[in-house]
Amino acid sequence: MRGIFSKRRMTLLVLVALVAVLPLVFPSGYYYRVAALVWISALAAVGLNILMGYAGQVSLGHAGFFGVGAYAVAIGPARLGLASWICILLGAAASGGIAWLVGRPILRLKGHYLAIGTLGFGVLIALVLTSEAKWTGGPDGTSVARLAVANMRISGPTAWYWISGFVLVFGAWLALNLEDSPAGRALRALHDSEIAAALGGIDVARHKLWAFVLAAVYASIAGSELALFDGFITPDTAGFLHSIELVAMVVLGGMGSVLGSVVGAALLTTLPQLLTVFVEYEQALLGLIIMLAMIFLRLGIVPGVQRMLARSAS
């Protein structure tokens, strides 16, 4: 596994190849848009996977951080006259800071209590974004200034396809490196058993907290990307349903697998587009496909298929 074709390199290779080759088969800008949305959601999912897949902690309020990133690039340029790219960084810093502050008490909770704690946090952020209408534009949302670099306005699906693709590859590379680092191993150890990990000399609280902060930063950057890409944002982005969608991406694709998070994001983003031909049966079919995937590939799609391949090879 340590050779050229280690799991880490293979995952990155597959991702880079996908991002580079997909445009060759895209007939129109619509495909670029859907693919860009996949890369953006995938970035948030890869981040959440660090918390859920590596460290084994649930967050049902993760869209809150997504919302912080999104509103940072909406409010910063419009109200404070800051450049959009600075606001991406400020949003990420703010998300990381908030995660650090709320993570300390919240991560002491376990199981269902942790889930409820994070859920409450996510709802709070959505509530603030909805009611502070003077700053956020309220429930109807607010428009977002376009990203400009050296006086060039960056907009349109093609440009954002490449930006989001690049950011995703970079984010995946970081997450993969983390997986194989001492910190990553510590996270997986506390995933299996917190007591055993603590006995092994791992600072459980600190590692959990950093996983939470890292996941928040990923979500925040994804949120900034989406807001700049769409040019318009509403508090729904930070809402509970979006949090659930992010968790579903990680679980469906396969917890602990970076490629799995990307596959999960791809499925949940493209399926609603593909299933529109079934009109009123769309929602039922979406549910059916997710159910079938979870019944037959219990570990999630990517680890499930990997195990199947390994089994048929032996």
């Binding site: 129109s28 800008g29 619509y30 848009r33 859907v34 949305l37 949302g141 699906p157 989406l226 769409d230 318009f232 944002i233 509403t234 729904d236 982005t237 609603p272 587009q273 529109t276 769309e282």
Partner: peptide
């Protein structure tokens, strides 16, 4: 198309209506 009230989805469908 059914956007479920989600502006992000609505925008994707708008792109689809125009280009596809």
């Amino acid at each position: 198309y059914d956007d479920g009230g989600d502006p992000n989805k609505a925008r994707t469908f708008a792109t689809r209506l125009v280009e596809e």
